[in-house]
Computed example of a mutant assay.
Amino acid sequence: MHIGLIGGIGPAATIAYYNNLVFEFRKAGLPLELTIVHADVTTLISNAGSDNREAQAAVFVKHLRQLKAAGCDVAAITALTGHFCFNETLSQSPLPLLSAIEAIDRYCEDQGISIVGLLGSPPVLSSRLFGQLRNTNCVVPKSNPEELGRDYLEMATSGVCSELTRQKFLNAGADMVAEQKAEAILLAGTDLALAFDGQSPGYKTIDALAIHINALLSLARR
């Protein structure tokens, strides 16, 4: 199976997708055939911020056609923010498109998790993951969600997480667990690994990127 990724949104997440795909496919003893196209993260941030779904879908469809021409069999968008126009993109896509949010919803249901706390970009937080979680309830930070969203965008575009920003995310997760009964914190932004990797926050976290990778791996095993 030839996998196509729409990458660049942001760069750190794209690298994480690549590294994790290589590792997981090697561990499974499966060959990895992979093509990545580069999308512009500032265009995505602008379109998602204004909820311009058709414009961003047109960008993604152009990249999906490139992946189709490269021989890909299935494609994935490497940013949860990019899922704000998932349905609009899917309706025009020349390739099957594997949703990270659907995979997250299935994972939570399988694990018996009914409430998750969200960390991610402003559109992810304000829309509660674009209303695409069907079987899982979600809560968002009560304290300074706009500031947390801006911090996420800065981290995603720069590929760097300061210690101050890391502590903001860790504390926001702890607050959602303590005050809003979140059973786990969903790292609903693929760049959040920059803040959480190597940390022991004291609560369960769900890595959206890892779940998406596992969904691609499961598809390759069929």
Rank of each mutant, 00 (worst) to 15 (best):
E54D: 12
E54C: 12
A55H: 06
A55Q: 08
A55S: 13
A55Y: 04
A55R: 09
Q56I: 15
Q56H: 09
Q56D: 10
A57D: 04
A57P: 05
A58I: 05
A58Y: 12
V59N: 08
V59C: 11
V59E: 09
V59S: 11
F60M: 09
F60E: 03
F60I: 09
F60L: 12
F60G: 00
V61I: 07
K62D: 14
K62A: 15
H63P: 05
H63N: 13
R65D: 12
Q66N: 14
Q66D: 15
L67I: 06
L67V: 08
K68R: 15
K68W: 10
K68E: 14
K68S: 10
A69V: 02
A69I: 02
A69N: 13
G71R: 05
G71Y: 08
G71E: 13
G71T: 08
C72V: 04
C72R: 01
D73A: 11
D73K: 04
V74A: 07
V74T: 13
V74H: 06
V74N: 06
V74D: 10
A75W: 01
A75V: 03
A75H: 01
A75K: 02
A76E: 05
I77R: 00
I77S: 02
I77A: 01
T78H: 03
A79S: 13
A79H: 03
L80W: 01
T81E: 07
G82F: 02
G82D: 10
H83R: 02
F84Q: 01
C85L: 06
F86P: 00
N87K: 12
N87Y: 12
N87E: 14
E88P: 12
E88M: 11
E88G: 10
T89K: 06
T89R: 10
T89C: 15
T89Q: 09
L90I: 08
L90N: 09
S91I: 13
S91M: 12
Q92L: 12
Q92V: 13
Q92M: 09
S93Y: 03
P94H: 11
P94T: 07
P94K: 04
L95R: 06
L95Q: 12
L95M: 13
P96Y: 04
P96I: 02
P96R: 08
L97M: 07
L98M: 11
L98Y: 07
S99N: 11
S99Y: 08
S99A: 08
A100F: 07
A100Q: 09
A100S: 10
I101W: 00
I101C: 01
I101Q: 00
A103V: 06
A103P: 07
I104Q: 01
D105E: 08
D105I: 05
D105T: 05
D105G: 07
R106Y: 07
R106P: 09
Y107V: 01
Y107Q: 04
C108E: 00
C108Y: 01
Q111D: 14
G112Y: 03
G112I: 03
G112F: 04
G112T: 02
G112M: 05
I113S: 03
I113P: 00
